[in-house]
Design a binder for these strands. Sequence first.
DNA 1: CTCTGAATCTCGTGT
DNA 2: ACACGAGGTTCAGAG
Lengths: 261, 261
Amino acid sequence: MSRKHQERSRRPRRRRASTPRRQAVIVRARPASLPWVRLVIATCQVDYVGRLTAHLPPAKRLILVKADGSVSIHNDDRAYKPLNWMSPPCTLVEEPATESEPARWTVTGKDGGQLVITIEEIFHDSTHDLGVDPGLQKDGVEAHLQELLAEHPSVLGEGWTLVRREYPTAIGPVDLLLRDANGAAVAVEVKRRGEIDGVEQLTRYLELLNRDPLLAPVRGVFAAQEIKPQARVLANDRGIECVTLDYDALRGIPRDEMTLF
Amino acid sequence: MSRKHQERSRRPRRRRASTPRRQAVIVRARPASLPWVRLVIATCQVDYVGRLTAHLPPAKRLILVKADGSVSIHNDDRAYKPLNWMSPPCTLVEEPATESEPARWTVTGKDGGQLVITIEEIFHDSTHDLGVDPGLQKDGVEAHLQELLAEHPSVLGEGWTLVRREYPTAIGPVDLLLRDANGAAVAVEVKRRGEIDGVEQLTRYLELLNRDPLLAPVRGVFAAQEIKPQARVLANDRGIECVTLDYDALRGIPRDEMTLF
DNA sequence: CTCTGAATCTCGTGT
DNA sequence: ACACGAGGTTCAGAG
């Protein structure tokens, strides 16, 4: 079912004076019509020049070429991040080995960055059609937490009610704007993991909201599934309340009564 | 040179009442002694339950299994990030297909998260030894910028001199502490790309440093190869100077004279 | 070990 | 196209 790698095009390459040259093979210039991956196991050296400079000494590795033009070089460890890569869109030019030089692949990115792969020995090379992917469905990210809190504002405080989600300000929307039992405004920043920059964000919003005489004084609540100690310290220092959330529990409880009427 | 996949161990699995059961094969429980990768092209469905919940409908994809125990599922696009994955350390249990059920791989992570891969058809399956990787050498990241600025403080201001790199404070080290031509202290935050959180970081340092009567008043400089407009606005608003850096130019100029004497 | 911050981050979304 | 924020971020280094 897997098919052998097919060369897409072939063109002569300008001969440099007094240098034995090889023919170059452009493997991909634009996304192909059909999804495919090419798998190569080879002893290779890699040199990247682009946003930074990086060098990989020769070793046996996996080279993964995708239909979108991306190339990545993996060894056996790291979760999924390659040792080296080139993001699409990019062009791969293959130069076969000659008597004097090893094979060389040059991957050129849109921004001019280059990944040069010098291939000493190939152990495996196969290309596989994949078909279109239906895509990933996710559940349980920050947006869901925000939704759930909007449905259950009383989780944050007895008698609190929702004014609106994504309450707009000049510097961006506040995740939730509530009213507490006394009618005072409460700005809520929702995070999956609460860190310092989230507290900073909420601080900026509070500063702005408190300039609005119709809202001031505005309380701040930092709500997250997990709050880092430094973030908690900073929040407390600024009079911001911290609430840790239980996603499963939130999902389980019935919608606040008041939204039913 | 590539060898066929070798099963590492085999154990009987407890039979559930009135359910036809299959034998399970534990592929990896711990890092193997030799680096290798396993490449599988298969029609598969993937369900992840862990820090979030995710589902991939059946389609033909690449499954990449590494020696460190990680498993990742790729389709033909995205730079290098898999559609779904499990980070090491984790355990892969293979259950072969039976008459009534398709093959199923269950990957269990350290935190209890699970990735369940239901395999309908396998088109390719090979395992390859890789050998130990010598590792990646990088050049041109933030640390280098900081080094270069430490060597060339006059790039930031005429007559400025270095007090020290990584100047310690209660909330962490300031990238650079300098003295300007008048002997006033200057705190410098160095970034490759300057964004709002970098300005916030520097602001916190300045607040702290300015409490020190030996240093106050301390000027702030935000130095980066690229500064986002919003970050620049915020910095200006707080009296922090912005400097954009040219890495190549910095690398080219000779070390500041004063460090030569 | 945990925690912190950088990253060739990647990837989505909104303007 | 660019800017901004989230991420199952990943990754490396320091305490």
